[in-house]
Design a protein around this nucleic acid. Sequence first.
DNA 1: CAGTGGTCTAGACCACCGA
DNA 2: CGGTGGTCTAGACCACTGC
Lengths: 238, 238
Amino acid sequence: MQTLDRASPVPLWAQLAADLRERIGRGEFGERLPTEAQLLQEYDVSRHTVREAVRGLKDAGLLRAQRGRGTTIATSSELEQSLHGLYSLSRSVQTAGLRDHSDVLVHERRPAGEVAGVLEVPDDAEVLFIERIRYAGDEPLAQDRSWLPWDLGRRLRLADLEHGSLYDALLQRAGVVVTGGNERIRPAVPDAPTRARLALPRGRAVFDIERVAVGGGRPVELRRSQVRGDRYSFVARW
Amino acid sequence: MQTLDRASPVPLWAQLAADLRERIGRGEFGERLPTEAQLLQEYDVSRHTVREAVRGLKDAGLLRAQRGRGTTIATSSELEQSLHGLYSLSRSVQTAGLRDHSDVLVHERRPAGEVAGVLEVPDDAEVLFIERIRYAGDEPLAQDRSWLPWDLGRRLRLADLEHGSLYDALLQRAGVVVTGGNERIRPAVPDAPTRARLALPRGRAVFDIERVAVGGGRPVELRRSQVRGDRYSFVARW
DNA sequence: CAGTGGTCTAGACCACCGA
DNA sequence: CGGTGGTCTAGACCACTGC
């Protein structure tokens, strides 16, 4: 049974959360998560550890617990993102059961220019610049522009970017684990080219999201996204 | 010292969090929160309880903890809202050290009409409708429109709405504790009247936020807000 | 009533920071 | 090295649900 490694530096609760997330994704539990008592017996950890893991999944919007009733697996057919937890387009799209792929419009080496400061590279360094349109099913959902330091970006293949997550590719190609970051979300009126690429009617707004991802103690990606507001929203339950 | 009431139905950690929030707001701690050891001694609770309280304040973006270093009080001069925790304009405004007040434009009894379903009142019931412009300092920040069941709304006084939180007023006037709710956040292009009331230039976007607040087992408020995107943003650190 | 998740205690070991 | 926050255990009582 032991998917949990007590010698690992990764906290037990995080390992447990990852395992539960995978099992939930496979539909192993149906609508209802096993009770805390069952989980602490199955994984042989304390109740606190189970609760810590489940808390993370609740915050991410995957679970919903009710005292006396049990913990149910949240089902959502809409494209929405819990206000708790990290924004992830791929996850939202996949949770909604839609196909997640990207058109790569630009994929080129460039001078770092104005992003040198944010990426903490020298002013005369080079970066990989990527521009993608991300789809949920057959309709465009977002425009992503990413800048990565060239020593990382050079490892990425174009195919990596058309399916799946850029961070998965970074891990597999460059051995870099994205461990943190920060992002800021604002509403915006898209400019004409963005509006065209997103097939968005006039007068509609988008989320404007700027993210700096950090791994191995340094910035590994600056990303600026415009996400269609008519297809995506943030949701909080409290 | 006892601001904590062990007989209260409110969890200890929540009472502690509220007390800490107030003391932080008064600037009592300066830049650094007392250590967990100090807090557990001062309040005479277990470490778990202290950590639970502090966790809430960290998620809300008020605190930042670093292993080995201590817990510091987040200073932010911008109006921003952590992606964790509940969206609260008042809190963001107060954290930024700005004056939080409202102009009440409309405050009237009306037929429930189309909000009857959401508020779970009969179709022919009446509601209190409130329209406010909310300020941060001297500049408008948001437009709030609220609908409340009339048996609750009738208790509210106009002065309640010009300063402080509507939920505080509900508690004091009607004895209703707002215990939960849900909200959805989208980007939008404001219509002309809204743009004028918010003193927003053309071409700027707003957050469009719809919230249903629940207390005592039933909906107590429907709120639709437009928040200026150039003054407010959501921020996540992970 | 038994079973669920929510809260709380007491204690332990650890990784990390700064002196 | 001592002090910090992060993790983990073992156990307890409670509020709420549904039978």
